[in-house]
């Protein structure tokens, strides 16, 4: 037992723990999907954990997050409890979206987590609006908006980059470039495959980041988020990463080379960090134990959770006003 404090080492161990939580949580989700406890579409983030964990280090609790349908990692890293995420995937009343949303639509507005959006690029305009409201009120918040490389082909992407730049909105565009939009490779989707270059044409400061290195992601995100917060207008990070699993549980993954997948797995963000930080086997085991306990608790919570009564089916279509009028 050593008593010398090493804040950098401690912080990096915390990053490792966060990534492992996401990894193990999602591995469990895949199992539960096969067991038909989780249904619908399930998009795993496995391989991309460094992006969510690194980027969200740069935010405070006051900042806003907008995400996609591949958002378990963002939600966990944001502090949405594993139990309420799991209960949501079980379709339970105590799920973070009361069973209405499922895997693709995790919401936790108390943590300023504005959801999983399953319309590709559909979150960008909302992020602009969150940021605009903050600006109008003089709140010094940053809105982090996550989306994929595929989203960069949508009109909404271009409309939003232009508008955010034009109005100098405090948005941190966080593009998760995992080289594929479902089965369509980057070069089949885009003429200019350097997405940071495209963002730069809107006069948005933008640069590529090694999305398999959580420390690099954190550093870039801190730098960008500070600039956004200081009134520097929107910033754009192209986070270069890779999903180790198929697009969704429906996807037979016919379009990727096994060798390509294996090559990327050698850059596993979790193994990489553990190696670079000389994390011992014992330390890892301790983290694994802790993570496993959290996940089994989450599953127990979800299994014991009540279903929303069918009588409440049409609740939340309109707001429930209390009092007169």
């Amino acid at each position: 037992m050593t008593h010398t404090r090493d804040p950098v080492g401690e912080h990096r161990r915390e990053l490792l723990r966060q990534m492992l939580r996401i990894r193990r949580f999602e591995e469990k989700c895949a199992e539960l999907y096969s067991a038909a406890e989780i249904r619908g579409f399930l998009h795993l983030y496995i391989g991309e954990e460094a992006v969510a964990v690194g980027a969200l280090q740069a935010l405070t609790e006051e900042d806003n997050v907008v995400s996609t349908y591949r958002e378990h990692g963002h939600a966990l890293a944001r502090g949405v409890p594993a139990s309420s995420i799991m209960a949501e995937m079980y379709g339970r009343a105590t799920g973070c979206s009361r069973g209405r949303g499922g895997s693709m639509h995790l919401f936790d507005v108390g943590r300023r987590f504005y959801g999983g959006n399953a319309i590709v690029a559909g979150g960008l305009p909302i992020a602009l609006g969150l940021a605009l409201a903050d600006r109008l009120r003089g709140d010094r918040r940053v809105t982090a908006c996550f989306f994929g490389d595929g989203a960069a082909a949508e009109g909404e992407f271009h409309e939003c980059l232009n508008l955010a730049a034009l109005w100098r909105l405090p948005v941190l565009f966080s593009c998760e470039n995992n080289l594929y939009a479902m089965g369509t490779a980057l070069a089949v989707e885009h003429k200019e495959t350097d997405l940071a270059v495209r963002a730069a044409t809107y006069e948005i400061p933008s640069w590529p980041v090694d999305g398999m290195d959580v420390v690099a992601v954190e550093e870039a995100a801190r730098h960008a988020a500070e600039a956004v917060r200081e009134g520097g207008g929107p910033h754009f990070l192209e986070l270069r990463t890779y999903r180790f699993r198929a697009h969704s549980m429906y996807d037979p993954d016919r379009y990727r080379d096994k060798a390509e997948i294996e090559a990327w797995k050698r850059h596993d963000p979790i193994d990489g960090l553990a190696r670079r930080e000389n994390v011992t086997r014992d330390e890892l085991e301790l983290i694994e134990k802790e993570v496993a306990a959290e996940i089994s608790e989450a599953i127990e919570f979800a299994e014991a959770a009540p279903l929303e009564p069918v009588a409440d089916l049409t609740r939340f279509v309109h707001s429930e006003r209390t009092g007169a009028g």
């Binding site: 249904r39 619908g40 339970r92 979206s97 069973g99 209405r100 929303e308 069918v310």
Partner: peptide
């Protein structure tokens, strides 16, 4: 209602 996720709903 927008279609909810939970099977029973």
């Amino acid at each position: 209602v927008p279609i909810p996720y939970a099977r029973h709903l």
